[in-house]
Deep mutational scan, measured.
Amino acid sequence: LEELEQFAKTFKQRRIKLGFTQGDVGLAMGKLYGNDFSQTTISRFEALNLSFKNMCKLKPLLEKWLNDAE
């Protein structure tokens, strides 16, 4: 859980630094990986307001997006 919290915090900082909005991330993930995510979902991930199971599902996809974006 602590690792997920740290990743969510780091993800948000890096996303902002790269100049992407939460909506941008959701759209890009849909185009790149075929998984559409709403701005709300990205927001809830960053705020740790998703279930643990959903957080765990999203984390590898967001890590991949972040690596591709950088």
Rank of each mutant, 00 (worst) to 15 (best):
A8P: 02
D36H: 07
S51E: 13
F37H: 07
E46D: 01
K59M: 13
T40E: 02
K53I: 15
K31A: 10
K59H: 11
Y33F: 10
K59C: 05
E46Q: 00
L1A: 04
G34K: 09
G19D: 03
R44T: 06
D68S: 14
I16S: 11
A8W: 01
Q22D: 10
S51Y: 02
S38K: 12
S51H: 07
R14F: 03
N54S: 14
K64I: 09
Q39H: 14
T40P: 10
D36Y: 09
F52P: 02
G26K: 06
P60S: 10
Q13K: 15
L61I: 06
P60V: 05
K53M: 15
S38Y: 03
F37E: 04
N49W: 03
L32R: 10
L61N: 11
D36S: 08
F11G: 00
F52L: 12
T40S: 12
G26W: 08
K9E: 06
G34P: 13
N67Y: 15
K17D: 13
E2S: 08
Q22Y: 10
F11P: 00
G23W: 07
F37P: 04
E46F: 00
F11L: 04
G30W: 13
E2P: 04
N35G: 15
A8K: 01
L27I: 12
L48Q: 13
K31T: 06
K59I: 05
D24K: 05
E5A: 11
E63L: 14
A28K: 12
F20Y: 15
G26H: 06
I16K: 11
N49R: 07
G30Y: 13
N54L: 12
K53Y: 05
G26C: 09
L50P: 01
G23V: 15
E3Y: 04
Q13C: 03
E46Y: 00
F7Y: 04
W65D: 00
M55Y: 04
R15M: 00
N54A: 14
A28E: 02
R14S: 08
N49M: 06
S38G: 14
F11E: 00
E5Q: 05
K53P: 13
K9T: 11
G26N: 10
Y33G: 06
N35S: 09
R14T: 11
L58W: 13
G26L: 08
K59S: 06
L50D: 11
F20V: 11
D36N: 09
R14E: 14
I16V: 11
Y33N: 07
Q22C: 15
K53F: 15
L1V: 10
R44A: 14
N54Y: 12
S51I: 01
D24Y: 04
E3M: 06
L27W: 06
K12M: 07
L58F: 11
L58Q: 04
A8E: 00
L50A: 05
G30Q: 15
M55P: 00
F7G: 07
Q22L: 13
S51D: 15
P60W: 03
L61Y: 15
L4S: 03
D24F: 05
G26Q: 11
V25W: 01
L62S: 01
K12R: 14
S43W: 06
Q39P: 12
R14I: 04
C56Q: 15
L66D: 00
Q22I: 07
T41L: 11
F11H: 00
K12V: 08
K12D: 00
L1M: 15
G23M: 11
M55H: 03
K59N: 03
Q22G: 06
A69P: 05
A69Q: 15
K59W: 11
K31M: 03
